[in-house]
Design a protein around this nucleic acid. Structure first.
Lengths: 142, 142
DNA sequence: GCAAAATAGTTGCTATAGCAACAAAATATG
DNA sequence: CATATTTTGTTGCTATAGCAACTATTTTGC
């Protein structure tokens, strides 16, 4: 067999992403927030009242997933959805008071996670890494 | 809000992994193979007769997922499971003839995918990238 | 201004992904 | 060698992840 499985950069990236998700999942479990739900919370902390489509675009995800994650967050009482008065197709997503309180939890966890992950890696290396990742995503678009 | 969402390297890696998976999924769809099922096929092409636990270790995944993916591959007729004669707890996973024929499909697709992804990126950059990804995974272990 | 096309969201489907609890078998330990 | 522990695989649960088809709106084009 001429190929070497572990040489594929995609495999390396996939395994890294899995490890990241698992780590964050464990950190957030005590607060009843799943990793992707957490990303939505963080987006809303920066920009409350986004529509589901806007959330989907910012997370590069299918709107179907967003709808289900947002529904779960609503069940948990962290967010509230209300129809856009100017466009009744759209649902605007707002943090509840309970959701806003998560700020004190999720941002420190995200910062600490990022700090742990990037230990021993220079800012320049991180910048190069982001450029390469962007380039690879671009390569798939064309 | 002091954090900047897109600055997290984990987000960049996650989005890249999603893009990769989606691309491969589309390439493989015509052959009735899902992306992760494809990884199992490729591992078996290199090393037929691995047990489910061995597959799980090589893919850094929970054995639960492997069991279900292998079950699906068996339903599709690509693999066959038989108990290990020396250890009746273990199931050894073998490619069927139909599974072996996939070699002509999945390896070219993997090579072509890798070629497209790494366009405009030097071997040295790829090597540095792998080192950084490994370092980040290691950072989470300690 | 009305039909056609586009957009936002939902439902149903399949495929990952991991944890807890379990059964069956193998290994370790006294 | 009998019991305790470990190992392999399964089942049930929850949470992503995306596609196709659908409804309800809004926008476009004529």
């Amino acid at each position: 067999m001429s190929f070497s499985f572990d040489d594929y950069i995609s495999i390396s990236i996939h395994k890294t992403d899995l490890a990241f998700t698992q780590y964050v999942k464990n950190k957030l479990a005590a607060f009843n927030i799943a990793p992707e739900q957490n990303l939505i919370i963080m987006l809303l902390l920066k920009n409350d009242g986004l529509t589901q489509i806007e959330l989907a675009e910012k997370l590069n995800k299918d709107k179907t997933n967003i709808a289900r994650m947002v529904y779960n967050l609503e069940q948990k009482g962290f967010i509230k959805r209300s129809p856009d008065v100017n466009d009744r197709r759209s649902l605007k997503v707002f943090l509840t008071d309970k959701g806003k309180e998560l700020s004190n939890i999720v941002i420190p966890i995200a910062e600490e996670f990022n700090h742990v992950v990037t230990k021993g890696i220079t800012d320049e290396e991180l910048e190069n890494l982001k450029v390469l990742l962007n380039k690879m995503r671009e390569n798939l678009r064309s």
